[in-house]
Amino acid sequence: MYRKTMLLAAALAVAPNALADTVFGVYAGGQIWNANNEGQYAVGSNLIEPNFENENHNSYYIALEHPVPLIPNIKVRQNTLEIEGGYGENDFSHRDYILYYEIFDNDLVSFDIGVNAMDFDGTLRTPLSNNFARQDFSVIVPTAYAAARVGIPATDWTFFADVSALSVKDSKVQDAQIGVEYRMVENLAVDINLNAGYRHSVIELDDVDEIYSDVTFKGPFVGVEVHF
């Protein structure tokens, strides 16, 4: 009788946390990205080859997962891409609004598919009457989204990859990363994961507010993710 009582008490203690994780999961994280920046852009007919400097960028996100059928999970990610080159600081920063479904998900393998609305609100520097002028641009680029995770059995390591991509006529936007994750803390209250990998982003815009761009950001990153 004593043993049954203890087992019941343990089950009741664990159940709320297990249920909360199954029904409602919140993920938050960020990364520092040491990118090699290269490419060119044009404002109207004025082609600029800026000789971009290599810089660190950052990215951070929050995601909400739930079990409600047909309603997608959501992830919002801010990507800061500010680079010196040409006539000053140029800004290709954008915010990702990702809606996705978990097609397959277990302790070792998961696969997600969805869409990503990449919301650009940037600035380019251009010469105008011998003064450094700025040309603002704004556009939302819808892309396909896919993500996969594969765990290594009997270890705290997981491989992961995700990609957002679209190519239409002369425009192409692509953001992809691949890496490895280490589960540093894993308990009923919170999970903390460290990750590192390689990220590659291409932004080719064709006549967006008189902006034409062909720029690439690529390099290693390190990050952390917290799961409540």
Rank of each mutant, 00 (worst) to 15 (best):
W157T: 07
L47C: 04
L166V: 15
N51Q: 14
L19W: 15
I48F: 00
I74Q: 02
N17K: 14
N79C: 03
D209T: 14
Y60Q: 08
Q78M: 05
H57W: 05
A154N: 07
A20T: 11
A161Q: 04
S164I: 06
D96A: 13
E84H: 06
G85E: 05
V26S: 08
S45Q: 11
P127I: 15
V14M: 10
E186I: 00
S93M: 14
T126G: 01
A146R: 05
D175R: 09
L64E: 09
P142V: 03
G85S: 03
N195V: 01
A20E: 05
M118C: 01
I178T: 13
L7D: 12
D206L: 02
L194P: 09
F137P: 09
R95D: 12
A35S: 15
Q40L: 02
A147W: 06
Y100I: 06
D206K: 06
N187A: 11
N56V: 06
Y100T: 04
L205C: 03
M184N: 02
Y2R: 14
T216Y: 06
L19D: 01
G223Y: 06
V215W: 03
E65G: 05
T5P: 00
G44M: 10
N130M: 12
M1C: 01
Y182E: 01
E210S: 12
L166H: 06
N73E: 02
V141L: 00
P220V: 02
D91E: 10
P153Q: 09
S93H: 04
V202L: 10
V76A: 01
A144K: 09
F137S: 09
S167G: 10
L12M: 08
D121Q: 14
I98W: 07
S59H: 06
E55T: 15
V115W: 12
E55I: 08
Y41R: 13
N130Y: 10
L8D: 01
D91M: 06
S138T: 07
F52D: 04
Q177P: 00
D105C: 06
A176E: 10
S164V: 07
P16I: 14
Y60N: 13
R77L: 14
F137G: 04
R125C: 05
V109K: 05
K75D: 09
L194K: 07
L47T: 15
H227C: 11
P67E: 08
H66Q: 10
G44Y: 12
V139P: 07
R199A: 09
Q174G: 07
K172V: 04
S213K: 08
N90V: 00
I140P: 01
G85V: 03
A15P: 00
F52N: 03
N51L: 15
M184D: 03
F160R: 02
I48M: 02
N90L: 00
N58G: 02
G114H: 02
G44W: 13
S138C: 05
A42G: 04
S171D: 08
N187E: 06
V26W: 14
R183K: 13
E102K: 13
E89G: 03
V222Q: 00
K4T: 14
T216L: 08
T80Q: 13
V139S: 07
G197V: 05
V226S: 13
V139Q: 15
L99K: 01
A63N: 06
L166K: 04
I192M: 10
L194E: 07
I192S: 02
D206S: 10
A35V: 09
E210L: 11
A13W: 10
E102G: 08
